[in-house]
Computed example of a mutant assay.
Amino acid sequence: MLEIEALDTLFFRDGKSFAKGEDTWANSNFPPSPAVFYGALRSVYFSNHMESFAKAQLPDDPTAALIINGLFMKLGQDICFPMPLDCVTPKKSRNSKACLLSLIKNDGVNSSPMSFLLQPKNQEEVEQDLEGYLDSVTFKEYLNSGAEEFYYKKLSDYIHNEPKIGITRSKQTHSSQEHMLYRVDMRRMDKASFVVGYTGISLPQEGFIKLGGEGKGAICKPISMRPIPAPQSESKRFKLYLATPAIYGKGWIPQWMDQNTLEGVYQGIHVKMLAAAVGRPVFIGGFDMKQKRPKPMQKAVPAGSVYYFEIIEGQWEEVIQSFHGKNISDNLAEQGFGLAYMGEIR
C-alpha cells in the first residue's frame, strides 16, 4: 500500500473535448479514475528501468503483471469510501447524516424491471450527496447493516478549487495568441491524500511520482491498512458495493448477467439482481504515452453504486471468495476498476 500526497494543485481532465482555439474551459474529474494510478505506477517503474521502456505494451512488458487492488481517499486521518448510493440525505438537511434506503417489493405500478425498489422510509424528499465519504469504521457498519443512519465526511472540506487561467503564447514571438485563452479546473488537497494498493511489480517504497495533467509532483510513502472484513450471515440476499468505477459490457449491467431475467452465473455462483442504486455514468479516457494519442473513451458505472442480489445457487462463503475485495469490472479490472465489497441486507 502506498500513500500519495500531492505537493501542488492537481488536474485530472474529464472526457469532454478541450481543443486549442475551440474550447476554453477544461473540467476536472475528481477523484481520478484508477487508470490514472495504474499509468503513474507504470511510469515510476519505467523511470527506474529505462532500458525496458521499449517493451511497454508488448508481450514481454515487465509491468504486465501489475494489478491495482485498492484505491481509496484518505481524508484527515481516516481512509474513506465513496458514499453508497443506497444512502441518501433529507433534501433540506444541513448536517452530514445519511439514511439507508429500504428494500420494498415492486407491486408492478412502477415501470422498473426490478422485483424490488429502494425507497426512503418516510417518503420524504431526499438527495444523494455525491461528495460524501464514509470512514472505514462507518463503512464496516454499513456493510454489516449495523445502523440505518451514518455520519459522513464531505470531500469539499478537504479538496478545494483553484482554477488556473492562462493563454497560449507563440513559439516564435512569445506573444499571446488570439482565441487561446483557457481555464483549467485545478484542485488542491488539504489534509487529504490517495491510498493505492498494488501487486505485480517492484517499486521504491518512498519517492516522488507525477500525477495528472502538467505532471504535478507528489510524495509516495508506505502505509498500512487493515482489510475490510466481509459480514457473516446465513441469508440468501446480499449487496455489492463498488468502491471504484466499473466498466461493464452491458452498460450498467455486468456482461455475465442476462438483461431480461436479471440472472447470471459468476464463478459458479447463480444470482438474481433484485434492485440497484446506480449513478450517472462517468467517462474513462486517458492518454497513451507510447503511442502519443488519446485512449478510446469508455462509459463506467460510478463508484458508490450498489447492487442487491439473491443467491439462487451457491453459499455465502463462496460469494465472499468471488466478490469481496475483488475487482469485478468486465474491462480493465487489472487497473483497479470495479473494486467490490459485499454487504448484508437488513
Score class of each variant (00 low, 15 high):
195 V>Y: 03
323 F>E: 05
275 A>L: 09
197 G>C: 12
248 Y>Q: 08
212 G>F: 02
221 K>E: 13
101 L>R: 04
139 F>N: 05
340 A>F: 00
326 K>P: 00
249 G>E: 13
55 K>F: 11
2 L>F: 15
83 M>C: 09
330 D>A: 01
85 L>G: 04
207 G>F: 08
156 S>Y: 06
280 R>C: 07
57 Q>Y: 11
99 C>K: 14
128 Q>A: 15
305 S>R: 06
106 N>W: 09
170 S>Q: 06
9 T>V: 05
106 N>H: 09
310 E>D: 11
109 V>E: 11
3 E>F: 10
252 W>C: 03
25 W>P: 00
36 V>L: 14
208 F>L: 15
344 E>N: 10
171 K>T: 12
195 V>R: 04
120 P>M: 07
35 A>F: 02
241 Y>P: 07
302 P>E: 10
78 D>S: 09
338 G>P: 01
116 F>E: 05
35 A>I: 04
115 S>W: 01
71 L>C: 05
263 E>V: 03
86 D>L: 06
286 G>Y: 04
261 T>N: 00
183 R>W: 00
302 P>M: 14
45 Y>E: 02
222 P>N: 10
254 P>M: 03
23 D>W: 03
190 D>G: 00
139 F>V: 09
175 S>F: 12
148 E>T: 15
41 L>H: 06
295 K>C: 03
311 I>K: 03
20 K>E: 10
192 A>I: 07
336 G>C: 10
213 G>I: 04
43 S>Y: 10
299 K>I: 01
23 D>K: 13
202 S>W: 02
87 C>N: 13
1 M>L: 14
100 L>T: 11
335 Q>A: 10
97 K>C: 12
162 E>I: 14
285 G>K: 02
35 A>K: 02
62 P>C: 12
164 K>V: 14
301 V>G: 03
319 V>S: 05
133 Y>A: 07
167 I>V: 14
303 A>T: 08
30 F>I: 01
223 I>E: 07
230 A>S: 14
172 Q>A: 11
266 Y>S: 04
30 F>E: 01
57 Q>V: 03
89 T>G: 03
147 A>D: 12
9 T>R: 00
273 M>F: 08
8 D>C: 12
295 K>D: 01
19 A>N: 14
74 K>Y: 09
300 A>P: 05
191 K>V: 03
102 S>Y: 06
246 A>H: 00
245 P>H: 07
130 L>S: 12
327 N>Y: 00
225 M>K: 13
132 G>A: 15
199 T>S: 14
18 F>W: 10
106 N>T: 06
21 G>C: 11
251 G>R: 06
202 S>G: 12
36 V>T: 15
327 N>R: 01
152 Y>M: 02
33 S>K: 09
339 L>T: 01
157 D>H: 14
240 L>W: 02
252 W>F: 11
170 S>P: 04
120 P>I: 09
143 L>F: 04
263 E>G: 02
118 L>H: 05
241 Y>D: 11
209 I>A: 12
107 D>G: 02
50 M>K: 13
26 A>D: 09
281 P>R: 01
106 N>Y: 08
128 Q>D: 06
203 L>P: 09
281 P>W: 00
229 P>L: 13
66 L>W: 08
101 L>S: 01
339 L>M: 12
